[in-house]
Structure formats: C-alpha cells, structure tokens
Nucleic acid binder design. Structure first.
Lengths: 151, 151
DNA sequence: CGGTATCCTATTCGATACTG
DNA sequence: CAGTATCGAATAGGATACCG
C-alpha cells in the first residue's frame, strides 16, 4: 500500500475523519472515498456475495453444499455470485474432472481478509438493530398519526 | 445490547470467527448473521446512503449543499435517500419555516457511529483495490485467451 | 453435479415537470 | 429552496429447461 493514515475525503474537500487504515493508495486521482465506496458496494453490496464469502471463510465447499447452505439463493445467482467472486480473486475454484463432476470453492486469503471489516459492520448492525427498528416504527407511526404532516 | 463476544454463525452451524463486538442481541431466532447481513445491506447497501451519511458526519448540510456535494445524484434520489436515513434514525431533519424554505440535515449519533465500521470496509477496499483489479484483469484475460475454456 | 441460456418480473434509479 | 409525482430505461434476480 502507498500512504497510510491519510485524511479521508468524500467530495471535493470534505474531510471525514482520520483513520489509521485508509490511505489514498492507488486511487490517486479524483475524490478518493466516493469512488472507493462505490467500488466496494458494487463488489460486495449485492444480495449474496458477503454471505458466500462468509460461508467459505473457514472451509472449502462444493457448489451443491453452498446451494444448500445459503437458503433462498437460486441456482443461477449462486453461479453468478461465485463467478464474480472468483473474478475479483476473493474465491478460488477447483474443478476435479471426475464423473460426476466435483467443484470446490474456497475463500482466498484476500477473501478471508474481507471478514474483519465486514464483521465490524455486522457488529454495528447487530448492536444497533434495535435502535433502528425503534426509529423506523416511530417514524412510520406519526407518518399518518398527527395532523396532515406539513413537510 | 444483549450478549457480547459471541461466535458468529452464518448458516445452521457454521462458525465464522469470534469477534468482540458481535452479539446475537435482539435477533434471537433464526441463523443470526445471515439475517443481519441482509439487514445492513438493505439499509445502507444502496447507491447513495453511505455517501450521504459520510458527508453529514462532521457538519449539518442543507439539501442543496448536499446535492452539490454528492455529484451525480438526482434530486429525486437525494430526497429518497434522506427520507430513508431519517426513517432509520441515522439522519435528522430540521426545517426552518422561512421563505425561501431552509432544511438542514445532520447525522445523528447513531449515524455517526456508522462511520467506524464503514471506514473499516473502505480501508479494506483501498488497501486491496490493486490486488482485486489485478485479479480481475487476469481473469478477464484468459477468458478468451487460451484454449476454449473447459468449465 | 455443475453450468449455461432463456424468459419474465420487480426493483432501482435518472429525467423531467410541477407545487408550496 | 425543498419536495412530490410520473415516466421510462436499466438492472437484478427468480424460475425453468437444457447441456456436459
């Protein structure tokens, strides 16, 4: 990595907060964080990617095993998700040319390294889940509760 | 919050890693993490939410100021994003009944608390951005490079 | 068993125009 | 200035059927 401990900015010149892990690194040009956020979202912000890398964190799994574990994912989406993860180097694919075919998927070191920050987010969600639900309920309540809400 | 320092599981009995921040808390029933991940993704996994809370992290901003800063967001999506963030208690909205109208948006403490885990993710993305791009290029290269790829 | 292709639906989001 | 409403394009994602 290039620099460390840089100030993170979203737009033109908007300091967010200093953080000892964020460097401008390679994304040199443009407003850094905005692009980076979009990047990470378009990469693992879809419906299944995080779930899949999570499942592969500890042990490799075959396609069908994954399919059983994910619960709700369609055959099509599992293939597609795995393809993208493989493409990004987060998951490795090993096919054994037997009959019937056997294909094992495993998280790469890079894929496993994703777990730490993701667990941070998951932790946040778990910790504040209640607060959010409460806020949402409150908001939805006086949406049609009191006077014709003047917005 | 309920428990702390629990083992995080994705599916039936799939330990991921122990993490000192993750408790089963309120989401008691079902396979915990799966639901939580879906939760957090459906909340801030969209195109603009993280960007907006990021911009409001340090100082309140008016609607138009935000609109200028986000760059690329449509009028419609900014309103909608702010509505959802307000609904979830991540952002507060204060309208001053003047003419012309003035409305200020600010991150709530809850909204600001989101910054930490998100910066973890952003840091990861920034740090590994190069590796991912490289992997992707390599993958795309021999997609139509060598023999008719037997998948 | 693992993967691809086709079809169809729902959602997301941008553009635009109009209101207080 | 802030917000709403309507429309349409693009995308994501599920169901299904078929191939190796």
């Amino acid at each position: 990595m290039g620099a460390t401990d840089a100030t993170l900015r979203i737009a033109d010149d908007v300091p967010i907060v200093d953080h000892p892990h964020v460097g401008s690194s390679t994304c040199s040009t443009d407003h850094p964080a905005s692009a980076v956020i979009r990047d990470v979202l378009s990469r693992v912000g879809d419906k299944w990617s995080l779930l899949v890398v999570g499942l592969l964190h500890d042990r490799p799994l075959r396609f069908t095993a994954l399919h059983r574990k994910v619960d709700g994912i369609s055959h099509r989406m599992l293939t597609q998700t795995l393809r993208n993860l493989e493409r990004d180097g987060l998951v490795s694919r090993t096919s054994y040319p037997e009959i019937p075919p056997r294909v094992e998927y495993a998280a790469t070191p890079l894929g496993r390294s994703l777990a730490e920050p993701v667990l941070g987010l998951v932790g946040w969600a778990a910790a504040n889940h209640e607060q959010i639900t409460a806020a949402r309920d409150a908001f939805d309540d006086d949406a049609d509760g009191p006077a014709p809400q003047p917005r």
